Simulated assay, not measured.
Amino acid sequence: MNVYGVVGYKNAGKTGLMERLVVEMVSRGLSVSTVKHAHHTFDVDQPGKDSYRHRVAGASQTLLSSGNRWALLSELRGAPEPSLQELLAQLAPVDLVLVEGYKRDGHPKIEAYREETGHPLICSEDESVRAVAADFELECPVPLFDLNDTKAIADFILTDLGL
């Protein structure tokens, strides 16, 4: 499976870039899935709903299904967080998986960077970052793209992956 990441610090523009890249890649006829890493507790279920009640009652996994979609919720219940590779193995095959976060993993990545964040560039310390998408001109050791030039960024990713 072809995997490419979007990394950066908080408010760097990662989610917006991910969203635009999904639209761009799908418009080119590619099947795309996404993985998003969260650094905090999150809940996609609603209190009071049947699936929430199943999970709170102690179910290890709860599968919710309808005519439009299905979702599988897995509770770790104290077990370690699965690795990115373990999570990718859970996905159905697609042309491209775009990953938001997991900046310490070794898959190829593009760094989203906004001047206002003031953080150091990740690409300076991480060889898996292949390019930077920024909202201003800056010196960096990898190719630099305008953060809003989604087509050029998509072209770079597909070329880098050999697609």
Rank of each mutant, 00 (worst) to 15 (best):
G78Y: 14
V32N: 01
H40Y: 04
V32Y: 01
V22A: 09
D149G: 01
K151L: 13
D146E: 14
K10W: 00
E125I: 07
D155M: 10
V44P: 03
L91H: 11
K36W: 03
L138Y: 09
L76D: 04
R28H: 03
R77S: 05
G67I: 00
D155W: 07
E137P: 01
Q90D: 02
V142S: 06
D135M: 11
V56T: 10
N68Q: 13
P108A: 10
E111H: 02
N148A: 09
R53E: 09
E116R: 15
A112N: 08
K10E: 00
Q85L: 12
G5D: 08
R77A: 10
G78T: 12
S65I: 06
S66Y: 02
M1S: 14
E19M: 12
D126C: 09
L163M: 15
A89Q: 14
E86T: 11
L30K: 07
S27V: 02
D43P: 02
F156R: 04
S33F: 01
L72K: 00
D105L: 03
R114A: 14
L76W: 07
G106Q: 14
R28L: 04
K151Q: 14
L88R: 08
R20P: 00
Q61R: 12
L84D: 04
V7T: 15
I110A: 13
A89H: 08
L87K: 11
E125M: 07
V56Y: 00
E125F: 11
R28A: 04
L98I: 10
V99A: 09
T62A: 06
S33Q: 08
N148F: 03
P141C: 12
G118C: 11
G106S: 15
L98T: 01
L138S: 11
S66T: 13
L88F: 06
H54Q: 12
C123E: 09
F136W: 05
G29P: 05
L91T: 10
R130L: 15
Y4R: 11
D135Y: 06
L63K: 05
K109W: 11
A134I: 08
R104H: 14
Q61G: 04
P143V: 08
G58S: 10
A79V: 00
R77F: 00
V6M: 14
F145S: 04
G78R: 14
D126M: 10
Y9F: 15
Q85N: 12
F145H: 06
M25A: 15
D45M: 00
E75Q: 10
G67M: 04
L84H: 05
S65G: 03
P47W: 00
L138F: 08
G78E: 13
K10C: 00
R20D: 13
V23W: 04
Y102K: 08
A131K: 03
I110P: 07
I110V: 15
A133E: 11
